[in-house]
Nucleic acid binder design. Structure first.
Lengths: 127, 127
DNA sequence: CAGAATCCTTTTGGATACTG
DNA sequence: CAGTATCCAAAAGGATTCTG
């Protein structure tokens, strides 16, 4: 069967949505080297609140991209690690990052130019 | 200089954000074959409202990913087409789509499994 | 035709405080 | 330590109506 990206129910939409998630791709990339516990993730992913980090992790766990392992000890310890499926996404993310690193300068320049043109238009309209 | 994805100001964040935009990647991929006018885009991208489509197009234009060309005629005609920069993003998107098409089935299965486990937990808690 | 303007609902992200 | 519970502000997304 043909996957049609135009279809609102197209499965690839799900993936693009996940990629766009502010924290999801970050978490996946942080987990690349190996398992990590909640507090370490918080430290690594900077100023994310526990609530948002939990949300992100639950979503990724539900997607089968990572696993959550609880150790029965006090104080509690919970490890998160990429599944094979999650790890298989890394190359695609890497491709995107590479593009980003190489082209964000051009994007930023385009934005500056665009904004300057708008500014000019506003000023001349007010003449 | 080292780009650090952990940095909230990291430029690659901008790219991931754009990729995650519900309509942006769709528009870029629809424009691959060549220029297209507003109404054709609307038809292609299904049920998007003109407001949202306009927003998306403006953002992409500002990013330097596409150009907007107005023809001085009645009725009006406006063409949108990818810039070289916009087109250079296509391979990376293609990589993602390929991953999506190959793995969305596994993601969906993982979700079903996860939801079923949750459901079981709820039922047994109510025993 | 290609949108702009307005209004409204839903979702998202985050701050803060509390708990097993 | 690893979360959960509440509350809130901001933004995204969309329906509808109008216009050069």
């Amino acid at each position: 069967m043909e996957t049609n990206i135009m279809d609102p129910n197209c499965p690839s939409r799900l993936v693009f949505q996940r990629i766009g998630d502010k924290w999801a791709t970050l978490v996946i990339q942080v987990l690349e080297p190996g398992p990590m516990r909640f507090s370490d993730l918080r430290a690594k992913v900077a100023v994310v609140t526990p609530k948002v980090l939990t949300q992100t992790l639950r979503t990724l766990e539900r997607d089968g991209l990572l696993t959550r392992t609880v150790f029965a000890q006090v104080p509690p310890r919970v490890d998160y690690q990429l599944t094979e499926l999650g790890a298989s996404l890394l190359p695609a993310l890497k491709t995107l990052r590479t593009w980003a690193e190489q082209n964000v300068g051009r994007m930023a320049a385009a934005q500056d130019e665009y904004d300057a043109a708008i500014e000019d238009a506003v000023l001349s309209a007010a003449h």
